[in-house]
């Protein structure tokens, strides 16, 4: 791939560039694979464990940098003031009650309609917003 037709110097350089690209691609792939397998990610030197769906397993490890990282996994490119309004409400409720608030409660208390919440968090209030806010998934008849 890199050196077969390599009689001129120019080709050699291209070959090395190609090689570096390939190696780095493979490294990224391995890194991603390891992240999936070990189900964790690293932010600012902190290793954060997540479950199969990417929800963090220890809500105490959550911070804003973690939220920024998780946002990117849920199709939220940038966390705006409106995003933070929802996230902070979710976190405050969770701190006080030990569970995510009802969806209806979120819309009532933040003033955003369900449609607006979906605009902010395309994967929805539970899978998107709660995940970014570092809350666990509710289970049962939900």
């Amino acid at each position: 791939m890199l050196t077969t037709k390599d009689k001129e110097g120019n080709f050699k350089v291209a070959g090395i560039v190609g090689c570096v690209t390939w190696v780095s691609l493979i490294l990224i792939l391995i890194k991603n694979l390891l992240e999936v397998l070990s189900m964790s990610f690293e932010v600012n030197g902190k290793v954060i464990e997540v479950d199969e769906d990417g929800f963090i397993t220890d809500p105490d490890l959550w911070d804003e940098a973690v939220a920024e990282y998780l946002a990117k996994t849920e199709e939220v490119e940038e966390l705006t003031e409106d995003h933070w309004k929802v996230i902070n409400y979710l976190r405050d409720y969770y701190k006080q009650y030990g569970i995510a608030p009802m969806v209806r409660k979120v819309t009532k208390e933040t003033g955003f309609s369900l449609k607006e919440i979906y605009e902010l968090f395309p994967s929805g209030p539970a899978k998107g917003a709660c995940k970014i806010a570092g809350l666990p998934k509710p289970t049962g008849c939900v």
Partner: peptide, 30 residues
């Protein structure tokens, strides 16, 4: 997990979702 977690919640907190007493009250009030 979708069964084991609700079972654990129900055993510890009285319901599958893990709603604690003050949270239940808050929801019903709303």
């Amino acid at each position: 997990e979708w069964i084991a977690s609700p079972v654990a919640n129900c055993y510890k907190k009285g319901n599958h979702l893990g709603i604690q007493p003050h949270a239940l009250k808050d929801m019903v009030e709303m």
